[in-house]
Each structure stands twice: as structure tokens, then as C-alpha cells.
């Protein structure tokens, strides 16, 4: 399994721990990550709002870079997954295709539209498979109750993303089970984290994030895990604000997807960048019988 690795902007900067954990896990499950220093930002949904056509063109360029290398794209962010997939879909429209091709051609770039975009979650569950992962587990996450938080753009719109059922997905929960932890089902797991309006009306974003975390907690979750670093920002970096917004001390550790996998495969907290989290993951680590890592 060899992919053009598309980390996205946040994984390279404030979400660096995601990149760390991704590399650690990939090395152990046999995913080869090929890096490209010329990938540009996927647009995150915001660029799309300012100029949708340009957003498609920028992502067509990203997809062309992977195509030229003969590789499919691997994302580690639900939002990147969504934006790059949308670009492929938009290009199926003849008028859009004509305009984008017209803009790429002077740059000597041509894109056939065939690059597949997959998220790490899908690679782990579809290509590696839950059974193989279970076989690689060295520290089963027994006793840990984990609420998955998928992130909107991984699943929806369902007829564009073609991932799994958008209303009742289960790939992440299957993976959590394979790691030895207990998946927790709760309504918020397929809902929004509030991130897109964090800079538009923060209290509302905080309230939304707080609501989802509260929901997971009310259903017994000790921790949450997400395949999207933007969700992670809302749920972890801004959890203090979320707690205030819903009037409840949430204290919910939020793992990035590969961090959870890495823990089960034997990584240390440092390997996975856990000390970088704003909300300490100590309580969850203690449940696994580990000594807490000083902040």
C-alpha cells in the first residue's frame, strides 16, 4: 500500500501530533507514505465559499500531482477528504471541467479525473482490515470506552462521498473494537463539531462542540476519537470554551484516529504527540494501566 500522502495544513502545524501518529502507524501496518512538497491547501470549505471554481482547480492540481506519480491520495483529515472528493465530483460537470482544464493547461498540467482519494480510516478498515489490525495489537485498549466522532465531510453528502452509510456508519466503531476498546454509540457521532463557525460566532461553535461531547459522555464514553484535525481543534483545543458553553466540566480526552491505533499497537504517548493536547489524555491512559505523562 503506497500512497501520495496529503497531510493537510493543520497536521503540518498546530495538529502536528496527527502527522506524527500517522507516520508511526503507517510504518507498522505497511502503508508507504510518499510526500509532495508542492501540495496546496484543500481549501477547507472556506476557500470554496469565496471562489468555488478556483477551489476545484487548486484541488485538481493536487490530484494531478498524485496522478503524475501514479499514486492514489491518502488524507488524514475528514475535511481534506471531503474537499478533494468534491473536486473530483465537480469535474464530472462538463462546464466546470472545461474551465479548470483551461486554467491548468498553460501550467502544463492535465488531470484525467481518476485519482482516488482515501482517508486513513478507510485504508485501515478496508485495505488493511480490522482482523489484521487486531492481530497487530500489542496493548489491547481493554476497558476504554471510546466514542467515535467521524467529522461531517468524511460522510456527507453521502451520494458524493460514497464511503459508507452516512446516517449509520460503523467503520470507526469496528476499528475501535478491533483495538480492544469498547465503542460507544451516541447521536452526536455523525454530527458537526462546530469548527466552521469558530471564527464567525464562537459561542455557538462552542455550544455545538460541548453538546456533542456531553452526548458522548452521557453514553459512557471515557474518550473520543476523530479522523479530522479540525474537529480535534474544536473538541480539544477549544474544549475549555465548550465546557463553559454547556455549563459542565467535560474533561474528555480527544484522540486523533492514528493515536488510538498507535496506542494499541504499542506506541508511547510521546511517539503519538499526546502531550500536545490541550485536554490531558491522562485519565484515558490510566484506564489502560499506564503511568500519566507529565505535561
Amino acid at each position: 500500500m503506497k500512497f501520495a500522502y496529503y497531510p493537510g495544513c493543520v497536521a503540518k502545524e498546530s495538529g502536528k501530533e496527527l502527522d506524527l501518529a500517522t507516520r508511526w502507524v503507517s510504518a507498522r501496518v505497511g502503508i508507504e507514505l510518499v510526500e509532495f512538497p508542492n501540495f496546496s491547501c484543500c481549501g477547507s470549505g472556506f476557500l470554496d465559499e469565496a471562489n468555488g471554481l478556483l477551489n476545484v482547480a487548486l484541488n485538481a492540481r493536487n490530484l494531478a500531482i498524485a496522478e503524475k506519480a501514479g499514486l492514489d491520495l491518502l488524507t488524514v483529515c475528514s475535511t481534506c477528504q471531503g474537499m478533494l472528493t468534491f473536486a473530483n465530483r465537480r469535474l464530472e460537470n462538463a462546464a466546470v471541467r472545461a474551465k479548470v482544464d483551461g486554467a491548468l493547461q498553460p501550467l502544463g498540467i492535465s488531470y484525467s479525473g481518476k485519482t482516488r482519494v482515501t482517508h486513513l480510516l478507510q485504508v485501515l478498515t478496508d485495505q488493511v482490515g480490522a482482523d489484521r489490525i487486531r492481530g497487530m495489537v500489542r496493548r489491547p485498549l481493554t476497558g476504554l470506552k471510546v466514542g467515535a466522532f467521524y467529522g461531517c465531510h468524511l460522510l456527507r453528502p453521502a451520494d458524493e462521498m460514497h464511503s459508507e452509510s452516512a446516517e449509520e456508519p460503523h467503520s470507526f466503531e469496528d476499528l475501535i473494537s478491533a483495538l480492544g476498546a469498547t465503542p460507544v454509540l451516541y447521536r452526536g457521532r455523525v454530527m458537526c463539531c462546530g469548527f466552521p463557525i469558530l471564527f464567525v460566532k464562537e459561542p455557538t461553535a462552542n455550544r455545538i462542540a460541548g453538546h456533542q461531547i456531553h452526548d458522548a459522555k452521557a453514553h459512557g464514553a471515557d474518550a473520543m476519537a476523530t479522523p479530522c484535525p479540525l474537529c480535534h481543534i474544536s473538541l480539544d483545543s477549544f474544549q475549555n470554551k465548550a465546557s463553559t458553553a454547556v455549563g459542565e466540566k467535560l474533561d474528555m480526552p480527544i484522540f486523533h484516529l492514528p493515536q488510538l491505533v498507535g496506542l494499541a499497537l504499542g506506541a508511547t504517548p510521546e511517539d503519538l504527540g499526546l502531550p500536545r493536547h490541550l485536554v490531558s489524555t491522562d485519565a484515558a491512559l490510566q484506564k489502560l494501566g499506564r503511568v500519566a505523562v507529565p505535561a
Partner: peptide, 12 residues
């Protein structure tokens, strides 16, 4: 307008 989360739950 700008409070829309782009979450597509409505489209779903």
C-alpha cells in the same frame, strides 16, 4: 447566513 456549518445533515 454565515452560521451554516456546511455539515450537510440537511442535504442528507
Amino acid at each position: 447566513l454565515w452560521l451554516c456549518l456546511r455539515c450537510h445533515l440537511c442535504t442528507e
